[in-house]
Design a protein around this nucleic acid. Structure first.
Lengths: 252, 252
DNA sequence: ATAGAATATGACGAAGCGTCAAAAATTGTC
DNA sequence: GACAATTTTTGACGCTTCGTCATATTCTAT
């Protein structure tokens, strides 16, 4: 069996580089199919045909369809991590940074809805059981990395005195609160429930309001009662995610 | 083709009653398989074998596997609705009632994890596309019913003066906030992420805390700073969900 | 009792997954 | 450069499941 490398490396032989490149090609192709035709449109035969190799070769790289999907998810989560990283490194108050994380998530969900679905899909027990131990560990590590970024911002804010420390479970509860809210909003956003028709606001829009409500409740200063959250959003979008905003607003 | 009724009715003929009963039998059987063997374990052939009819007969009732799953989800959502109804009808403050809704959701998630997964599964685009218009409408209507219960509690609270009305988007934003948080927590709870190992709290536990934080932020009186949320939880569990608590604590 | 309608059946074709023995390509050695 | 050993590729194959449909069976009403 061939040696497959999931991470690029300096001293790879030509052969290894070839294999690595093909692995990326498979993921690229699969992702494209996924975006165009959804999960059912993604079949191993189709991927094989598309990359002009045989099915067996595809199986040399990924032992199942689920492995491919989780491979795609890993890359997507890396991309999301990069956006989160920008938020963490933002030169502003901690409250602004944590807000930027929320924007990052929302932007990503809007720009890459299919990928977002996949990230959730691989969390379901059925799919997870079909993924190898290694891939599961890889996913977990990325997940930890993302959580770590958020946790770091919260801890820094606490050390900086922006959040009073008189409450239990902080910073866990803040992280989980924001995480749940963000996740849930995304899920509702993609659920196809016609909120507009039902005379309700959009979940993603409300997530922005409610996240700030939550942070206010933890007394994370400056409180949103002292500034305009929509002005902040515009500022952060412009400062941190100009490219993403352009993509979002351009006619696809 | 046979006439299939999804709703029970007073003046059904014997034949219609038979068909209706069989439809329930199929759903019961499928649900059992689902609980024991997961989504992949559920096949049309297996259902047919189990109910001792042929596959064609199963297809006379449900035109695809997804239709069965959404049928199960409808029944589960009805059950959840019943729990929510208890919360709404609770003889206590509005804040206590909305809190009871949160408990209802959390209890249901713990008692019926597989069903909860399914309710989320049918929201994914892939599955939704395979469900008939009628079933989608039925799902939407139940969803609206559930939302309506929560909305009703919030509106009553506002009319009662428990929530100040100086903020925009209320009550939408409260409903969506709680909904997102509840959904997200469930998703994380079932995601298999080892929060305990990572030194973090359990999502469902944190959802309880964070929901109250959110309500506090909307200044929904009485504020959680004036009472013990854990004592409240115990009281509500005892008053409203004694049977469910017993099930939860009994060794399955 | 019997015709006609309603319902049940399971063999069948299609599609997709994952495997594996054989074929092809690559590498190393003299 | 020839040749053996190893690695890689291939696609036909077996298996499972879905959903269909012509045929068989059962029911109903006269």
């Amino acid at each position: 069996m061939p040696m497959i490398l999931s991470k690029a490396n300096e001293n790879m032989t030509r052969k290894q580089r070839e294999l690595f490149d093909r692995e990326q090609l498979i993921l690229d192709t699969a992702q494209q199919i996924l975006n165009q035709q959804g999960t059912q449109g993604l079949t191993m035969d189709r991927v094989a045909a598309e990359i002009e190799y045989s099915k067996g070769t595809v199986y040399n790289h990924f032992s199942s369809k689920e492995e491919i999907i989780s491979g795609i998810s890993c890359r997507c989560m890396d991309n999301l991590t990069e956006l989160f990283g920008r938020a963490r490194d933002y030169n502003g108050s901690h409250r602004e940074r944590i807000a930027a994380v929320g924007i990052a998530q929302s932007l990503y969900a809007q720009l890459h809805p299919v990928e977002m679905q996949n990230m959730q899909l691989i969390k379901s027990a059925d799919v997870r059981d079909k993924i190898s131990e290694e891939k599961q560990l890889e996913l977990l590590q990325i997940e930890q990395k993302i959580t770590g970024i958020v946790l770091e911002i919260v801890r820094d804010a606490m050390n900086n005195g922006d959040i009073p420390q008189d409450q239990p479970f902080i910073p866990d509860s803040i992280v989980l609160g924001l995480w749940s809210m963000g996740y849930g909003s995304n899920l509702l956003h993609m659920s196809g429930i016609p909120f507009k028709k039902l005379g309700m606001q959009q979940p993603l829009e409300m997530a922005w309001v409610n996240s700030h409500k939550l942070l206010d409740s933890y007394q994370w200063r400056p409180l949103s009662t002292t500034f305009d959250i929509y002005a902040l959003r515009e500022k952060l979008c412009k400062d941190l995610f100009p490219e993403e905003m352009k993509q979002l607003n351009s006619p696809k």
